[in-house]
Design a protein around this nucleic acid. Structure first.
Lengths: 247, 247
DNA sequence: CGACTCTTTGAGGGGCGTCAACTAAAGTGG
DNA sequence: CCACTTTAGTTGACGCCCCTCAAAGAGTCG
């Protein structure tokens, strides 16, 4: 290991993933200007992993993790019971996900599409970047935003009808991964109906029925299993139910 | 204002509140050792307010706020509709609450009991403590914990029965503000049945019925409107439903 | 003690879960 | 490229839990 530039021939693919993950991470958080020893510590702490569809990311089991999603799409799940999972959030490339080792429930990050993640042990990561207050501020900003989003989701779970929940999720996905054209939005959903149901606190059947109703109402079209075309975003937002008007 | 030690005689009560709030804040976050100018900035940014029961805290309306609850008990609410509020969390003395100015919904912090709060504008607060990385780490730790709690609550809202939700909330409150004696726990609930209902996504009537069932089952006793005696914590936890076993 | 609010209790109805059967889509091996 | 298998999604019938509406009881404050 005298010349770190030379990759170990035994595992060239792994190192390519690692390289790409760190490049994306640097772009997102601007760590390039950091002191060399801090950068070295960050690189030694971060484990880059490529995970296949449906596979769970190998999170540090005994401590909280900070996961940067460099490529792909994932779901964050908590097991309410041994058999039933609750999906807490969907994540896409560029997201930073805080995964507790163990709160009231057990957590896991599962790939919806083949993904590349960079996983840090939170405590040691914080120690390493202790003096880089700019990164700490950005970290707080992202965590705070995630908290606000989680709270908004709680409002959605609280007392909304099945149709309001499905419509809201579709509008969220439209904004996140939708492709706008004319007054329409095309969405290629990376998650299954079951994932959607688990995230909205509904059953697969109910989600499917709501898709059907929205289709019959002419608000959306569905193509294949994952394709959704939002024909009338305005009306769909209406069906998402009352939200306090943003002045 | 040449001698800051001398309080303005026009508002002695306000200044006593301010003083107590900052003392509590210093104790909680260890800001005493900070540079003088940082401490001065923090003090100039923080607005100490005493709020009566049922009153909304005067949050900075146009920017995110960071609120330290020095004394009392509050609820964080989001308005799902103009008439209906969703309670997102209950807070007690020592808590730090992040209140977004405006996310998908509008937020408010409302006192359950007469409270004293210290309110900061988040952005400027972060600028002021930019170099105090120890405080930034503590800030991240608390926000991360709040996020984990919010997620656990989401699991609870997702697909649990009314009784499981009520039982879980009672156990949470027992742990937070309960007084243990023998194998019992005494709780003095600062929030109404309506607040509980709004936080669990239920109606007042359903919450009341669940209290009744738990009482009939001999798991709890109720005294007055706010008093609850948990007679059998074990059995109550059972009724809170399945959680992944903490190894 | 009286007026108010909060809580409790009851009767009835609707939305979503449950169970079941069927259809469509995607992967597999020849 | 096509039959076969497997998985995911759709649709229908039925029942239960919780919301709705209504009224009476308990607690608190003037």
């Amino acid at each position: 290991m005298n010349r770190p530039d030379i990759l170990s021939p035994g595992e060239p693919e792994i190192d390519a993933v690692t390289a790409q993950c760190f490049v994306r991470f640097e772009e997102a958080f601007g760590t390039r200007g950091f002191a060399w020893d801090v950068q070295a510590q960050i690189m030694s702490l971060g484990k880059a992993i490529e995970i296949g569809k449906g596979k769970s990311a190998a999170i540090f089991s005994d401590e909280d993790s900070l996961v940067f999603l460099a490529e792909g799409a994932c779901k964050l799940v908590a097991w309410a019971a041994l058999d039933r999972a609750q999906v807490l959030s969907f994540h896409f490339a560029g997201d930073l996900v805080s995964v507790p080792a163990r709160a009231e429930h057990e957590y896991g990050l599962i790939a919806l599409t083949p993904s590349q993640i960079l996983s840090f042990p939170t405590r040691r990561f914080l120690q390493a970047v202790n003096e880089e207050s700019k990164l700490l501020v950005e970290l707080h900003r992202r965590t705070d935003a995630a908290l606000a989003e989680c709270r908004d989701d709680s409002v959605g779970l609280g007392r909304k009808t099945a149709q309001e929940r499905v419509a809201r999720l579709l509008m969220q996905m439209a904004g996140r991964i939708g492709v706008a054209s004319d007054n329409e939005v095309l969405i290629e959903l990376p998650m299954s109906r079951g994932d959607i149901a688990d995230s909205l606190g509904l059953t697969i059947e109910t989600v499917s029925r709501q898709f059907g109703e929205l289709r019959d109402a002419g608000l959306i079209e569905t193509g294949g299993r994952s394709g959704v075309r939002v024909l009338d975003p305005e009306a769909l937002l209406q069906r998402a139910g009352p939200t306090c008007p943003r002045v």
